[in-house]
Each structure stands twice: as C-alpha cells, then as structure tokens.
Design a protein around this nucleic acid. Structure first.
Lengths: 235, 235
DNA sequence: CGTAGCTTTGACTCACCTCAACTTGAGTGG
DNA sequence: CCACTCAAGTTGAGGTGAGTCAAAGCTACG
C-alpha cells in the first residue's frame, strides 16, 4: 500500500469529513453530494492532458472527482506560474465564471475524472448551487491570499514545509493519511508553485530529512514530526 | 494641480470608461451606477482608520466611492501582507462573502467614503447584483493570479514597473492621468505588496529615474516612457 | 540495455536584504 | 520664528539566501 492516493479509484467521500480550516483547501464538502444524483457528463483524462486552456471557450464548470490537476497562468511574454493544485471535490474553471473564455490552463497530473457542471442550468434549478459557487469563489480568494502571504514572508525551507502541511491537510480531509503523502508533481512544479527553483526544493527536503523532520523517498514523503515542522515554519 | 487624485472630491464616473484588460483592476464599471439610486448607508473614514478587521462580524459589503484603501492579511505568527489596494468602484469584503466574519483588514490610506451594500437584500431585489458579485469574485481571483505570476517571475525592478503601470491603468480607467500618479502609500507599503523591502523599492525608482524612464518626487511619479517601461518589464 | 526525464549534490554568483547614516518635510510647542 | 520630534525617504557598505551552472545518480519504459 505505497500509493495511497491512487487516483482513478473512488476516494473516500469528502462529505464524511469536517470543514476545512481557513484557506487551507479549495474543497467544498457537499458539492459533490449535492450534484451526485444528477445526470452529469463525466470526462476522464490521462496524465499531461489539458482539461482546458486559457483562451478556449468556456461552457461548463468542472468538479474533480478523481485524480489531480494543476492550473497555470501564462504572461504574454511566456512566464508561467502554477496557481493551484486541485484534488477531489475542487472546482476547475471558477476563475472565468464571468467570461466566455477560460483564464488559465487546467492540466491533469494523473489519470483523472471530472464531472461537468452546466452552471447556467444548475444556478436556476438548484437553489443551493449559486450559494456554493459564491463560497467557492470567496474561499479561492482567501486561499490565494494565504499563499501570497506565505510566498512573500517565508524562506524557501518554510515555504516547502507550508506546502507539505497544506497538502497533507487536504489529503487528510479526503480521508487519506495525514503523514504519508505521495506528491503527484515534480520538484520543478512544486518549485514553480512556491516561486522557488527545483534545486532549492530538493535542498530544502534534504535538509529537513537530515534533521529527521521528514523522510523523503522520491515523491513519497513521510512527515515524521509535524509539530516540529510547524515550529520551523513559524520561526 | 499637483494632487490629481484628491480623494474626497467626486472622481470622474467609472462607467464613462471602457472595460479593464484582464486582471488589471478590481473595479467593475457599472456597479456604482447600478446602486446609485438606492438609499445606501454611506460612511466616511479618515486616513489610517479601519473599515473592518479580520475576525469582526461581517454584515455588509462596501463599495469604495472615494479615497483609497489597502487590505491586509495577517498570519497567526504575525507576518503581514497587503493583498490589494482598492480605489473608487472596487468592492471591499467580497473575500468573506460566505463567512460570518471578515477575513482581512481594510484600512483607509486617505479620507474615504464607502457605500454600504446590504448584499442579502440586493441579491434578491436587484437581479443583476448577484451576477456582478460573481464577476467581481472571479475577477479578483484572476487579479491575484496575475500578481502571483508577477511576484514569482519578475525582478525587483520589474515588479515596481508592473505596479506603477497597473496603478496608472487603474487611475486612467477612473479618468485620471495615465502618466502622472500620486502614490497614496508609503514605500514600505508598496514593498510589502510586491514582496520587497522598502529600500529595494526606493532603489528601483532611483535607477529608473536615472535612466530617464520616470520622474520621482516623493510619492508623485511621472511615467516618462511607458513603452520603455513595458519593455524593461518583459525583458 | 539504452535513453529520457527526474532528482540530488556541489561550487560559485548575484540580487536582494540588513544595517546604518543622513536628509527631508510636516507637525508641535516654546 | 525657531527648535524639536517623528515618520518617511534616500543612499552606501557589506552579508547571505537562493539562483545558476554543471555533473552525476536514479527510474521508468521502450
């Protein structure tokens, strides 16, 4: 049982777990339950496939049901930034809710399944849907602000810790282990998200391992002392 | 006529100008026009006054009508980050739309007037209001992602340019000069927003002035060569 | 078995930070 | 009117954390 987050298998139901603390995750327990009975179009993607690209016409909203996505924005002169990683229960496409075109790329990092939400319809037929949507948008803003704060005020090592703790919390909220996590992205992707170079991510992990705070085995990470990690992050 | 952005005087009407390009500003031309006829509670604040603080009960939403705000988030261990500057036409409080408490501090940088929007009421009475709100939320996410990209990929000097160009564009959208801008915040506040130290902001401005790209006189900035500035930013 | 992509590590560099001195301007009170 | 203070801004000298460049190891997969 090394690979705890096998993506295409049904993950534990997110509604089974409690609320997320502020900004930690973009998941909204219950959204999946809310639409589970509806006849939604489902779509599966293989790793590296694009769910959509910035500039493409936007028709629906997507709810991640299995697998793992990243969203990217790109500047006119080619600079790229990963703005989020999306897990089961997270929405894709909300950032362009008011626009005819998508505003970012959404790329599967793994085999994935998404549910297509026809939001114009749902908005009218499901009274709670609009409310959920608003909550999802506001929560995304808070999440982004939290990361802005982290990237603007933490050292490289602290950012890596923040990333791991956040990721672990989100996985735990989905019913996975809070200490054993399988990163589904490369060091370069972690670095891009944290505004660090891949070598810096590697070095931070090596140092934390040397201090016994965690164990690194490729993309498999075991948090050995979450309390100490939290300590280092706040210091 | 040095102080072009005198805050408490009525600014030119935002609806008079066109759409913002992607992510540049959080303003939503028309929102003000939409609610202008309604009997809204208005509130004026002096510089350094808090409109609200993180954790305080949230009742309404605020539309900036005059003046200039910053919003700040603070971590449990005291790290602070300015997440946005808000001008006329911008909304304050949308980040906590789904919560009973505010999620950030909103602080007047100047004499300000805000209109209090009772969003629960408006949502039902004004059909377009919900739509505007959604648009405002999504646009805020795109704005945040744009800054994440900028802070993660640009040098100090480039960030300062990006800030000035963005600010100039927003002021222009409000009917002010696109080349002569009065910063209403300190170097430290600019630096905090850009994840730079205040000395670095000062040095960047000095260098750009030495190259003839702009003229600095305290908080009064004149953009002498916007094209060249854009060039430097993309390089 | 070989190739390609990812990861790790080391040596060196540099952009930005830190610390400190000095300037400027607004407000205050004798 | 001047002396004083205090907050904001500028500039310089020196330090350092993260980036850059390069080489080697590791895995997966055809």
């Amino acid at each position: 049982m090394l690979d705890l987050q096998t993506s295409i298998e049904e993950s534990p139901h997110p509604a089974a777990v409690g609320e997320h603390p502020q900004g930690g995750s973009a998941g909204y327990p219950g959204l999946e339950a809310l639409v589970a009975g509806l006849p939604l179009r489902r779509r599966t993607l293989k790793a590296r496939e694009y769910l959509f690209r910035a500039g493409q016409p936007r028709s629906a909203l997507y709810l991640v049901h299995a697998g793992f996505f990243k969203t990217c924005v790109t500047s006119v002169d080619g600079r790229e930034k990963i703005t989020s990683f999306r897990l089961r229960g997270d929405l894709l496409g909300i950032d362009a809710l008011d626009m005819p075109m998508h505003a970012c790329d959404a790329i599967a990092l793994d085999t994935c399944e998404v549910w297509e939400l026809p939001c114009e319809q749902l908005r009218h037929s499901l009274p709670q849907f609009q409310e959920r949507l608003t909550a999802a948008l506001a929560a995304e803003i808070r999440r982004d602000w939290g990361w802005m704060l982290a990237l603007g005020t933490l050292s490289a090592e602290q950012r890596v810790i923040a990333f791991l703790l956040d990721f672990a919390a989100r996985l735990q909220a989905l019913g996975f282990s809070a200490t054993d996590l399988m990163l589904r992205m490369t060091r370069a992707e972690v670095g891009n998200f944290l505004s660090l170079k891949l070598e810096t991510v590697t070095r931070a992990l090596s140092r934390l391992q040397a201090r016994g705070l965690l164990a690194v085995d490729g993309r498999q990470i075991r948090l050995r002392d979450a309390a100490a990690l939290r300590e280092v992050m706040a210091a």
